[in-house]
Design a protein around this nucleic acid. Structure first.
Lengths: 153, 153
DNA sequence: CTATTGCTGAAATGATTATTTCATAACTCT
DNA sequence: AGAGTTATGAAATAATCATTTCAGCAATAG
């Protein structure tokens, strides 16, 4: 995918907020036709630009009302350590985002938990447990000020 | 919503990965019936437990291949400053997540941009520009190690 | 033990929708 | 300018699907 056309940008803006609308409604909102929207959407799906529809769960409503961010420093950054770390992250569903970052720390983790004991448990069993990890520092989230999955297009 | 039933948990686990399936397919995968799945889903939507279907865009495929996290310290934390800050965050679509956090900093921001000049521009015009902001420190994301919207249920 | 209430799922329904086809329009390249 | 290529949208089609109804079942309370 070289560059998004105006039509494609508009389609993505709409579908990132509501993917339940029909092709004809999407066509109406983009001044296009149902057939063209359908073809464009299929192309973007195949190119991996846009996902299949998903539903988003409100963590607070399902007993995951607490967020934390955890910064991690590694003992070593060789390939083995990195892949061991990655595997550990993939295994824990409460760790929803992991970024390798520049600066004083090696990784930044976003963790979604029920409460402090739950967090403590994940920190101990999933992070401090690892041989490759040297230190970790945790920030508690006091409030979700803004939270969106919409990427500007 | 008091507590999630087994059926509801299974439904959410599936719908967080793929919301394009039909009620009958959802029923099949949960050993339930189409009618019951339909009713449960409507209840969960009404209770705000689960969103309408949305599509997720791959930032790298639409020219937003760079992520940054920015920590912000405020001059003051009075109600006016907080609401001014919140308003500024809401206005900038490149800032996708904002958390009020414990510790040395007041806020943690997740920013999705095209490149460094783009990031610089947002930092200057949207953050340092604000009267309520004292200091900010930015971490560059080197790699997205893990990134999911699926909340464990 | 019985009455009541609420939940379940199979089947019916009725509408909506994705998807294809085809004639036309727009554009590209020589 | 004109031949060739590609994209467009209106209409047709063929399925699929959400939603309702209803009879039976389970659980609860009196």
């Amino acid at each position: 995918m070289t560059q998004l056309s105006i039509l494609e940008s508009r389609m993505l803006a709409i579908l990132q907020s509501d993917a339940s609308i029909s092709m004809s409604e999407l066509a109406r909102q983009t001044n296009s036709s149902s057939a063209t929207c359908w073809r464009r959407l299929r192309e973007m799906e195949e190119a991996g630009v846009v996902s299949a529809p998903v539903r988003l769960v409100d963590p607070a409503k399902v007993g995951r009302g607490m967020d934390a961010f955890c910064q991690v420093r590694m003992k070593a950054q060789d390939a083995d350590a990195r892949s061991a770390f990655q595997r550990a992250m993939d295994l824990e569903p409460a760790i929803v985002e992991v970024y390798s970052i520049s600066g004083d720390w090696d990784y930044l983790l976003h963790i979604v938990v029920k409460d402090i004991p739950d967090l403590e448990n994940i920190l101990m069993t999933r992070i401090h447990e690892l041989d490759c990890v040297a230190t970790a520092s945790t920030m508690f989230v006091l409030r979700r000020v803004k939270h969106t999955t919409r990427i500007p297009v």
